[in-house]
Design a protein around this nucleic acid. Structure first.
Length: 451
DNA sequence: GCATGATCATGC
DNA sequence: GCATGATCATGC
């Protein structure tokens, strides 16, 4: 039977038969592993029997179905998408920037057959396995966010700023660079400046959530938007979140706690987060908000003290000494957070007149590349120190170490982060050390939220 | 007052 | 019991 006769359901059922199969088992053409898009080649040629191409219409055009393969990898937090899902290249000159439904993105990618496979850097490509294949249609509320993302990209091009496009401009759909090197540039319609070649892509955070939605249907993710929350071109996800906070700006922590029925006693370390949860109307943890996970939005509360300063640096998840020594910066969790995360800072500021903390500001922010480089420097130094053997010196205040300190870098440092000092992990040389994590410097945070 | 080691509160 | 966000504590 020709593959051209298959219905959508039959395509889905066909792909299920390949789950847990390696690409080597599927391949009927001895596809060389040196091909960059090896996995896609194998699926398209050996399962669907056509030559990979760059047509403007979907691969299985009679079904409006575009085929995509994407790697998942194992992390400390379960499976997560290894990279963004790259779609078609953007032709700035020929794209219809006035109508989303006429765009090359929508025409080619309105419906996707996504083949998730398990990536392991220890395995050759032919031994990597297909995990799941799904036929993916964007849920209505996702589509609105995607359309807003597309408009953001379109507006950059229409104002002659295609060279200023950044992946961080958008939430789910992004324009990622695509080309052999930074010399891959293209003309844009409303400026003489050449712009980097880019492709539409779905963010890795988005793909991770799509995968987990599919595999773990009873997940704890909680959505904060519905189909009507966002208006394309008028009201973004960030506008929507801001609107939820608006009524409470200027209110004191005491008052907000009272309003939401939160007991103030013995909750000093969590009171501000609890208030934020209630403002967003959450039942569960703020880390399990669907839209935050898809867009990689990282909520953080910040306190400004009576002296106008941020006293505390900002912590991130611990790293494992035995893992960081084998990692590269590009694959590290902290790089992912700083390069791809979008921070949502909720600021509580001490008011000198009323002598209390008040909810004062909400700010979305992404770290500039130049500061990510600083983080990298700290990370590389941390890795080197751990490989060379950490120096630990007992003092009256605890055990001092020689990992990167706040005074060493303007952006990030390393600090203990555990239940207490006895909460430890092994070092490469067998000694144990209190768990550590990366922290953004308090003065750096103050600078960001003051801008 | 700051820098940095240590610890608390919460949710899963 | 652990991970994590947030804050505390104290020597200098």
């Amino acid at each position: 039977m020709s593959k051209k006769d298959l219905t959508e359901l039959e395509v889905f059922e066909l792909m299920q038969t390949y789950e847990n199969h390696t690409f080597g088992e599927i391949d009927q053409h001895e596809t060389p592993e040196t091909i960059k898009s090896y996995h896609g080649y194998v699926v398209e040629r050996s399962i669907f029997e056509y030559e990979p191409n760059s047509n403007p219409f979907p691969d299985l055009d009679w079904l409006d179905l575009e085929i995509k393969s994407t790697p998942m990898r194992e992390t400390n937090r379960g499976l997560s998408s290894k990279e963004r899902l790259v779609l078609n290249i953007i032709n700035y000159l020929e794209e219809n920037w006035l109508d989303f439904y006429e765009s090359s993105f929508w025409k080619k990618n309105k419906k996707l057959l996504v083949v998730f496979y398990l990536y392991k850097n220890t395995l050759p490509k032919r031994e990597q396995k297909i995990l799941k294949s799904i036929i993916y249609k964007y849920p209505e509320k996702d589509l609105k966010i995607i359309m807003n993302d597309w408009l953001t990209i379109a507006n950059k091009v229409l104002s002659g700023q295609a060279h200023e496009i950044s992946e961080r401009d958008t939430l789910y759909l992004a324009a990622c660079t695509k080309g052999v090197n930074s010399d891959s540039v293209r003309k844009q319609p409303f400026s003489d400046v050449l712009a980097k070649q880019r492709a539409y892509s779905l963010k890795a955070s988005y793909m991770t959530t799509v995968y987990n939605d599919y595999v773990y249907k009873n997940r704890k993710d909680e959505s904060i938007v519905n189909d009507a929350s966002i208006q394309v071109g008028k009201f973004s996800l960030e506008d929507y979140i801001l609107k939820k906070f608006m009524p409470y700006f200027g209110a004191s922590v005491t008052k907000l706690a009272e309003l939401f029925g939160i007991d103030l006693i013995s909750q000093t370390k969590s009171i501000n987060s609890l208030i934020v949860n209630r403002i967003l109307g959450l039942k569960h943890d703020i880390d399990h908000v669907e839209e935050f996970r898809k867009a990689f939005i990282i909520p953080k509360t910040i306190r400004i003290e009576p002296n106008g300063k941020v006293k505390e640096s900002m912590s991130f998840p611990i790293f494992r000494f035995m893992e960081i020594i084998h990692e590269e910066w590009e694959d590290s969790e902290i790089n992912d957070i700083m390069s791809n995360g979008r921070f949502m800072f909720i600021v509580f500021k001490y008011d000198l007149t009323f002598r209390e903390y008040q909810l004062s500001n909400l700010k979305f922010w992404s770290m500039p590349n130049i500061d990510v480089l600083e983080c990298r420097e700290v990370w590389e130094r941390t890795k080197a120190i751990i490989i060379n053997g950490v120096e630990m010196t007992p003092t009256r205040k605890g055990i001092n170490n020689n990992l990167p300190k706040k005074v060493d870098n303007s952006v990030m440092h390393v600090r203990p982060h555990g239940r207490d000092a006895s909460d430890r992990l092994p070092l490469p040389d067998g000694r144990m050390m209190t768990k550590q994590s990366f922290w953004l410097n308090n003065d750096y945070i103050l600078k960001i939220i003051s801008e």
